[in-house]
Design a protein around this nucleic acid. Structure first.
Lengths: 211, 211
DNA sequence: TTCTTTCTGTAGCGACCACTAGAGAAACGT
DNA sequence: ACGTTTCTCTAGTGGTCGCTACAGAAAGAA
């Protein structure tokens, strides 16, 4: 049994038995991403989810497990698609400094892209929670703190390569980047335009230490 | 009838009739502030509130109206106490630039003060919501955007007084300050220490334009 | 066709949501 | 003491929460 409880063909290429799923799992998942992204984990009910996904509750539970598992799959999916800008910037730019510059500039665009929720799902979808959302919130916090350490690692390389002044502290610089990103995400949710966020990112980058 | 539905003495100084309230309204309000601050508006139930306030639901409704009215009173109270740092900085510092410097440095301390929730209540207590919390979220967003315009006004004065370079844009600078504050609030909630936030604020201030 | 497998829709589980009716308790003035 | 006023406590209201039992539908296998 695969994670989603089904596959189109068996191991030997034989067709799967039983009634086939009547909805597009990928499309339904994408709708769930949008709902969680917009309203957050605890504040999005299963009824909200089934409505936007266009399926009944039993189908949701059969295909995704439960609400928490669905959310985690949504976070993973978000990270592969809309939220991939951070990994891409870190992977494609040659230095940490260049990655940070690209990161902040792309965030301004990504956080205000039309036709989808504003801001970053990893940042904003589990800010308010009670016991039921504590684990999920801890998971997102873990992602954020891991991202911070990744940036810090890249900046440590910059420091060793002489691309940062010897007095620069990679950990603090990384936290500064995270702070600006989280602030930009909230600003986007408060109505800031892409141009306004671009200007904010530009100011933040003037704080970057030069050798 | 006063807002809270009672007073200790009547207009003529005569004692109030009827059974007196058996709890300290101020103390109960303060506990409600802490609960909303920690968990947010929609994710704090009336049962949570009555528990931390130490009163029954009918007493809460008699003394504060309903959940929304209680929250609004909590926001007002927060603004007078723990959240007053912004107004104080803007009122006491002679220039916008000095106010911003003080603001960011005090935020590092206020957002990580021991014995109370981390971050800023106005920033973080209505990030995730559905229909029921939409009005409350809009109210907080209004406070944030009003604060931004207040800072912008002070920076406009700095610009006119020649304390900022003529190319500086007060609106963008104000939004940068708001972005860093919102980011610092989230960082505090993610576990950043006061020292770490201090260092972040210091970096942010290096971006401040000098004449 | 008939059996087996898997999905879907109805209907509802106990728990909780914000909120309140109504009875009794505790203060007042007279 | 007695009536009036106001608060508190018990016990609920209808509605929604996440989740699921069960029956019927829709597919492949025999």
């Amino acid at each position: 049994m695969t994670e989603d409880g089904r596959r189109t063909t068996g191991p030997g290429g034989t067709a799967r038995r039983g009634r086939p799923r009547s909805f597009d799992r990928e499309a339904a998942l994408e709708q769930a991403v949008l709902a969680f992204w917009e309203h957050g984990y605890e504040t999005t009910s299963v009824a909200d989810l089934t409505r936007v996904m266009g399926i009944g509750a039993p189908s949701l539970y059969a295909a995704f497990g439960d609400k928490k598992a669905l959310f985690e799959e949504c976070v993973a999916r978000y990270g592969e698609r809309q939220g991939s800008y951070m990994g891409v910037a870190l992977a494609e730019e040659p230095t940490g400094g260049a990655a940070v510059r690209r990161l902040l500039r792309e965030a301004a665009a990504v956080f205000t892209a039309p036709g989808r929720p504003r801001g970053c799902m990893v940042i904003s979808s589990a800010v308010n929670y009670q016991d039921a959302g504590a684990e999920v919130a801890a998971g997102l916090r873990g992602i954020r703190n891991r991202n911070l350490r990744t940036i810090e690692g890249r900046l440590r390389e910059d420091l060793a390569a002489g691309l940062l002044p010897p007095t620069a502290d990679p950990a603090t610089l990384a936290r500064f980047v995270g702070t600006v990103l989280q602030g930009m995400s909230q600003q986007a949710r408060d109505g800031a335009t892409r141009q306004e966020l671009d200007a904010v990112a530009e100011i933040a980058l003037t704080a970057w230490p030069a050798v």
